[in-house]
């Protein structure tokens, strides 16, 4: 429902600047993911938007209105925390209704909204329970339900899945994606360090590094046209291979990037790179081959299906020229 603009936003704790001037526009109804390594400032940025931390300089606008000094509850936001942050002494129903009770909302309206959110998340049968009687996944749903009841303009998620186990994480990720479709006019901002979550959920991704925006774009854009070695290395799994020295010189760049899925096995030494298989990982659907070709590190090659290549065998590799990424000495892509 709301368009969010950040204009040269900074945040300092004393002399330490953690957010170093961020300009970003988040569109109405967009699902925006902040992603980056730990300590990059993504959570701080989310907390600045929430109003839990104060902006040091710059402007934060919701629908062209400056909200820098509004307290969180006046911003029309709702937040889902990493640890769920349910009120342990309140039943699920009261957890979800607490915000509206504090706002002295109409009782019938509160009840309607709580039940609707519960229905949406299929937690109606849990309304009378205490948080400690719920499983991790159920708690996370209640936390999301509590946010829905607030009928926010902006929905904020702070690493909501990192406390769940792997299987539940995938399932809840799907729930959140469905939720986004069901509430497609609500802007959502989602913080994660997991690039898979980012790629699967986001309309657009903002990659942060050291308190600065590294690149903003759709998952496809980031994958196909990373604007820096950092983004290229951060997005995609397994990680992009980076080659320097003669491998890069051959293509007229300082660093050559090749994604594991864009390197093929060439028959009988006809490929550009020759090497020895030093390690292999069989994921069932895919095979990751680690090939020592004389670069700084072994090159990872992703091959679909089952490929029985014994350790130590010599293989020939051919990168797909149209998918190679060339970077200059400054880490920027060369065109």
């Amino acid at each position: 429902m709301a368009k969010i603009e950040l204009k040269n936003v900074t945040k300092s704790y004393g002399a330490v600047e953690v957010i170093k001037g961020i300009d970003l526009e988040i569109r109405k109804g967009e699902f925006m993911v902040f992603v980056g390594p730990s300590g990059c400032g993504k959570s701080t940025l989310l907390r600045l938007i929430a109003g839990l931390e104060e902006i040091t300089s710059g402007d934060l606008l919701f629908d062209d209105q400056k909200v820098n000094h509004l307290v969180p509850s006046d911003r029309g936001i709702a937040m889902v925390f990493q640890s769920y942050a349910l009120y342990p002494h309140m039943k699920v129903y009261d957890n979800m209704a607490f915000g509206m009770k504090l706002a002295r909302a109409d009782k019938a309206e509160t009840d309607r909204r709580v039940r609707e959110a519960a229905r949406l998340l299929q937690i109606e049968h849990l309304l009378d329970r205490l948080p400690k009687q719920l499983s991790g996944g159920q708690r996370q749903r209640v936390a999301i339900g509590r946010a829905i009841v607030r009928d926010p303009r902006v929905f904020l998620f702070d690493e909501p899945l990192s406390n769940l186990d792997a299987a539940l994480r995938v399932q809840t990720r799907l729930e959140i994606a469905k939720l986004h479709h069901a509430m497609d006019d609500t802007t959502m901002i989602y913080v994660t360090h997991d690039q898979v979550e980012a790629m699967t959920l986001a309309d657009r991704i903002a990659v942060l590094r050291d308190g600065k925006l590294e690149q903003v774009g759709t998952p496809a854009e980031l994958y196909e046209n990373p604007k820096s070695i950092f983004v290229a290395g951060f997005i995609g799994s397994p990680k992009m291979n980076f080659l320097t020295g003669s491998f890069a010189d051959a293509r007229g760049c300082a660093t050559l990037g090749a994604r594991p899925e864009h390197i093929e096995l060439a028959p009988d030494g006809s490929g550009e790179w020759q090497g020895e298989v030093v390690h292999a990982e069989d994921l069932g659907s895919d095979n990751y081959l680690f090939v020592e070709i004389g670069a700084d590190e072994p090159v990872v090659v992703r091959q679909p299906g089952k490929l029985a290549i014994p350790y130590g065998s010599r293989v020939s590799l051919q990168p797909q020229a149209q998918h190679l990424h060339r970077f200059g000495v400054d880490g920027q892509p060369l065109r």
Partner: peptide, 14 residues
Amino acid sequence: MTDLTLGRAAGPSL
């Protein structure tokens, strides 16, 4: 509710 609060002059911060 939100429109009302947005129109208000910025009060004390959190």
